[in-house]
Amino acid sequence: MDVAALVKLALDVEGLRAEPGEAPRVDQAPTKVSEIDLNAVEEAVSIRERVGGSVTAFSVLNWGPLSRRMREAREAAKRVLAMGADRFVLVADEAAVGADTGFTAAALAAALRARGPFDLVLAGEGTEDSFGGLVPGRLAQELGWPYVPYADGVEVGGGGSVRVRRAVGDFEEVVEVDLPAVISVTQEINKPRIPTLMQILQAGKKPLEVLSLSDLGLPGPGAGRGVRVSSVVSPRVERRGVVIEAESPREAAERLVEELRRAGVI
């Protein structure tokens, strides 16, 4: 089975400095592979290990500045290739930086068509930095494929379909979907493998292809359509920040309960 895994270089939100009321300093924060996308890569590789085929990772660079992000993207690609992907296709273009999810999906669809065919596309259900969860669904629509998100398990049967175990609302479901299809995975599906030294060294020899939008025959994102981010501001966290220190646990407990009662919480 030929599987494509979608990988986003997400902003490392843990390392992001944010001052309330100001814009978080996204240019200074590093990017790394979004964690849930690593689950998608792991699943893709384990499917190939079970049934054969290939794994190609696709990524569209979304954060600038491109000069800095390219280096991080190469590191990210190395990690994904070391996990067992066979090749990495990176769409890097100034015009795609900051593009909305519709454009990202269109770019991915073009890259998938150019380097396909694929039987299955796997992606994380969301990314740490945005958690919109929109790109896989948009991509499925763009390709005209069925879309099954939130997979906690994927079982590859014969006969051109896979079974997806997932939970939505108050129900657990097993969904059978015909291929080709787009599936998003949760963090529950597996534990991404940590590559070994040899695997990282060998990853350096695997193909990393960098494509521009014109390589894909795509114009830049058109004006007046979709979503434009006009500002990002850190929320003012209005937490009281009272630290309760006391001689004994009993005293601390009494002080806490008193504070909560006074605040009308209990």
Binding site: F131, G133, L134, V135, R138, A140, Q141
Partner: peptide, 18 residues
């Protein structure tokens, strides 16, 4: 969130979740 992306692409429009 499952249906938002596909519908937006179907409409050829924008989408925001959360």
């Amino acid at each position: 969130r499952q249906v938002a992306g596909g519908l937006a692409q179907l409409l050829g429009g924008g989408a925001s979740t959360e």
